[in-house]
Design a protein around this nucleic acid. Structure first.
Length: 841
RNA sequence: GCGAGCGUGCUGAAAUUGGUAAACAGACAGGACUUAAAAUCCUGCGGGUGGUAACACCCUUGUGGGUUCAAGUCCCACCGCUCGCACCA
């Protein structure tokens, strides 16, 4: 008997599929298209469990839709620009390009070893100049359409990676990759005008029916729309004025001070004032920390503003740490009676607190107001409710020209300049006379130089001896290239478009292909990209559309966010992490051996696999030991995709045993057949087997469609348990197992194909359409009906399907000796056909 | 602080529109085979009470209430965990 040997059979079929170019995809208008995409990986050199899970989920999907008659596009590429290549290059004294290419090679082999149905002929890599050439074109296109601009601003500076970060890339005041505390620094930067699309990006979220609500909500909060008004305050004895933004214009009569951000334009008046500069530095430091600071500090400008409606009222103006420059106008009016922050500030600086909203307790501060609360001390707004007053005041300020209705967004323009080498060069030159020009198209791509010094501090392209020197092609005047490179999120914001026509030389993407394949039907990746990558990509398609490209407005029709792969953690008393591999259990406690000594350790909770916690398991070694099919099967059978998956080596072993068992049972012992002639003379057991198998086709397919893979696998196990128990014979045996093999094929393709081959058939499963479920009833089915008394289960009765209530009651009464049901005493009988009968007594 | 989600055996989990709680697995325990082990196969596996036993009865989905003939599922309050945002004016 042949033993299940995944190493041999997996290689064999992978070679076969590669030779036959089985997964090559091309436009075919006679078929419905289906674009399955998993977020492409950064080529770190080794795949991790997250990749294995992500790509298994995608592959099962791709194979399922392909067998269901769709023309499937399932490509793969490399998000290959970025910092780690530079760091590695510095460490090994090599070149980022070589390092990256080496990693791509070895990672590609690992991915191929999993048996993914990927069209490798469409492989792309973002650090390839054939890719970034088009990216530079897109940048120029954006520039020409006013979607990209340069400005001086305070930016997030990561002192470890020595680069600027976008707001989205700062997490809890730290760089998303380096973890270093981010500083504020003033630099001249390129920005993409994402805020131009704030409204659209927000309102179109409603159209994304097949996105997780959670992700949509996160994007909504990030875009952060607030509706209110801008009100102009004139400074006393001055021509200057300040625009403040407020969502509560109806509280204007409670305004007793104005607070400005230290970065507000008015601060230029104090640029010589030592005391102010000191104060300002303190505020910036406090804001950098990003922790919530209750302490509110102010700097009295000694300026006063006129209240727009109360001409005699003079309102003092302060700078304060609690007003942010990057929201609204960096200026607010303080209404201390009805805002907690304003209240804290007013208390600190002895500013009057004026109550303008009626409240029962007459206690101040009174914050928790609602629309129906009534205004007082507010002139013409008196006795109006807040909602009504808001309408009136907005109308009034618009008439007076002291303000206007206004909508503000939290979403800021996307800073894309990075002071790093390993990224896409920005195709801009600065002419000696100060003119800023885009590079001519025939000069693209602007390639990165290979001879580069990465060890010295600062921007490597800036430091290169001559790379930046160029001439204006028109005038011949000396010019200098932009030495910043693009944020790598720029690279990944359009790669899914490039996959439609990856080889296109003239254009980033060819319209014909793009219009066939786009949008991506199912996009699968981690929740960590809920805002960054997914928002940028949604912006990109809109921006390209704005530039005249014909593109659907939403790039990803359905989004699946898969959970993390977790594993148990252990650490010593000194909080040093210990690899679970080196842990053993004795009498209920955990131990490890260190330097020939036995040390007691503590079991922590299960956490996302990470190098720092030493709980990483290498998927490659699992595939090597147990085979790709085992690994794939485990990856999808334990938890639903959107939940975290608990890694377990016992789970892997169990899957392997299961495949071995089925292999031993079937290898050369069954005939692979596609059809079975059912007839009414079949034995009852045979009818049951036929029905069971066909019901499984149905429910398995439904579960796969709905990404309930764990349930789908459970259905398969039920089928195989059933088939083993029933000891079928002849063609029915062959038929049922053939179906089983075809269903499990999308999860364990090599395993299934090999069993078909060993059965003596030359069928290729890939060429056979997905089985159709025959759900017609063969047998005179009996159903189980639960008998309840007052809603509690008392017994189960087996009766003919669709039995009528009266007949059922009669049967129960005839056999009622168990429960003493007296129909006369029964108040009510509730009957759910084929399910339940409940006697209320 | 604001917003969202979750809470079911030892563990991962399942449970259509409210209708048999724990499907399918893992771990564990016992048994068969074996000189022994591994592998394999079989059995048990939420808790309690009664019974020699087969069995019977009761309880059980974080806690406490409610709606309903019937609640893991719906409503209210509380507790706990996870995630996102965080001085957003």
């Amino acid at each position: 008997m042949k033993k299940y040997n995944p190493e041999i059979i997996e290689k064999k079929w992978q070679n076969y599929w590669a030779e036959k170019r089985t997964y090559k995809s091309k436009v075919d208008r006679t078929k419905k298209k289906f674009y399955v995409l998993e977020m492409f990986p950064y080529p770190s050199g080794k795949i991790h469990m997250g990749h294995l899970r992500n790509y298994t989920i995608g592959d099962v999907t791709a194979r399922f839709y392909k067998l269901n008659g769709f023309n499937v596009l399932h490509p793969m590429g490399w998000d290959s620009f970025g910092m780690p290549a530079e760091n590695a290059a510095i460490e090994n004294n090599s070149n980022p390009k070589d390092w990256t290419e080496r990693n791509i090679k070895s990672m590609k082999l690992q991915l191929m070893r999993i048996g993914l149905s990927i069209d490798w002929e469409r492989e792309i890599s973002t650090c390839d100049s054939n890719y970034y050439k088009h990216q530079q074109k897109i940048f120029i296109e954006f520039f020409k359409n006013g979607l990209v601009y340069k400005k001086d601003s305070f930016v997030n500076w990561d002192p470890v990676d020595k680069t600027v970060l976008a707001n989205e890339q700062v997490v809890d005041g730290r760089g998303w990759r380096s973890g270093a505390t981010v500083e504020k620094k003033k630099l001249s930067q390129w920005f993409l005008n994402i805020s131009k699309f704030s409204h659209e990006l927000l309102s179109d979220l409603n159209q994304l029916e097949n996105w997780p609500e959670k992700v949509k909500l996160m994007q909504k909060n990030w875009i952060g729309m607030s509706e209110g008004a801008e009100i102009n305050f004139k400074l006393c004895k001055s021509k200057l004025s300040i625009d403040v933004f407020t969502t509560r214009p109806e509280t204007i009569f409670g305004a007793t001070f104005i607070a400005l951000s230290v970065e507000h334009p008015l601060s230029s008046k104090f640029s010589e004032n030592e005391k102010f500069l000191k104060f300002r530095n303190k505020c910036l430091k406090m804001q950098e920390k990003r922790d919530f600071i209750k302490e509110k500090i102010g700097f009295d400008t000694s300026f006063f503003a006129e209240h727009p409606f109360l001409k005699d009222e003079k309102i003092p103006i302060f700078f304060s740490n609690y007003v942010m420059i990057n929201y609204g106008n960096g200026a607010i009016f303080g209404c201390p009676a009805h805002d907690e922050r304003d209240y804290d500030f007013a208390k600190e600086y002895n500013i009057p607190i004026k109550c303008i909203i009626k409240n029962k307790e007459k206690k101040l501060p009174y914050f928790e107001t609602n629309e129906t609360d009534i205004l007082i001390n507010s002139e013409f707004l008196n006795e109006k409710n807040l909602k009504k007053a808001k309408e009136i005041i907005i109308k009034k300020i618009e008439e007076n020209k002291t303000g206007k209705k206004s909508v503000k967004f939290k979403l800021k323009d996307w800073g894309v300049s990075r002071q790093r080498y390993w990224g896409c060069p920005i195709p801009i030159i600065y002419r000696k006379d100060g003119k800023v020009l885009t590079v001519k198209e025939n000069e693209l791509p602007i390639k990165l130089p290979n001879d580069i010094e990465l060890r010295s501090a600062g921007n490597p392209l800036e430091n290169h001896p001559n790379w930046k020197n160029t001439k204006c092609p028109k005038t011949g005047m000396d010019a200098i290239r932009e030495t910043d490179t693009l944020d790598t999120f720029f690279d990944s914001s359009w790669y899914f478009l490039r996959f439609c026509s990856p080889k296109s030389i003239e254009e980033p993407f060819e319209n014909k292909e793009l219009r066939y394949w786009m949008p991506v039907d199912h996009y699968i990746g981690g929740i960590e990209h809920a805002i960054l990558h997914l928002l940028y990509s949604r912006f990109f398609v809109r921006a390209l559309k704005f530039c005249g490209k014909k593109i659907p407005k939403e790039p990803f029709k359905k989004l699946i966010t898969q959970g993390m792969v977790c594993h148990e953690t252990f650490r010593t008393k000194e909080n040093k992490w210990i690899d679970p591999k080196n842990v053993f259990k004795e009498n209920g406690t955990y131990w490890t051996n260190q330097e020939n000594k036995k040390i007691l350790i503590i079991k922590g909770r299960s956490e996302k696999m990470s190098k720092s916690k030493k709980n990483v398991v290498d998927p490659d070694s699992i595939v090597f030991t147990y085979g790709a099919d085992t690994a794939r099967l485990f990856m999808i059978s334990d938890s639903p995709p959107e939940k975290d998956l608990e890694w377990s080596i016992d789970g892997i072993k169990a899957m392997n045993k299961y495949l071995e068992k089925i292999y031993d049972l079937l290898s050369s012992k069954f005939k692979f057949i596609l059809t079975f002639q059912k007839d009414k003379y079949m034995l009852d057991e045979e009818k049951k087997a036929y029905e069971f198998t066909n019901n499984t086709i149905h429910s398995f397919s439904e579960d796969v469609k709905n990404y309930r893979f764990n349930k789908a696998v459970a259905k398969l196990r039920e089928l195989s348990n059933f088939l083993i128990r029933e000891k079928l014979k002849g063609d029915l045996f062959n038929y049922c197992w053939s179906i089983y093999i075809r269903l499990i094929y999308i999860i364990t393709p090599h395993f299934s194909q090999e069993l078909v081959y060993e059965s003596g058939s030359d069928q290729i499963i890939e060429d056979i359409e997905w089985p159709e479920a025959d759900l017609s009833k063969l047998s005179n089915t009996k159903v189980m009906i639960v008998i309840q008394i007052n809603g509690k289960k008392k017994d189960i009765i087996k009766v003919d399907e669709n039995i009528k209530k009266d007949k059922l009651v009669e049967i129960i009464i005839r056999n009622q000796n168990n429960y003493n049901i007296d129909v006369n005493e029964t108040k009510k009988i509730i009957f759910v056909p084929n399910k339940i009968i409940n006697f209320v007594i």
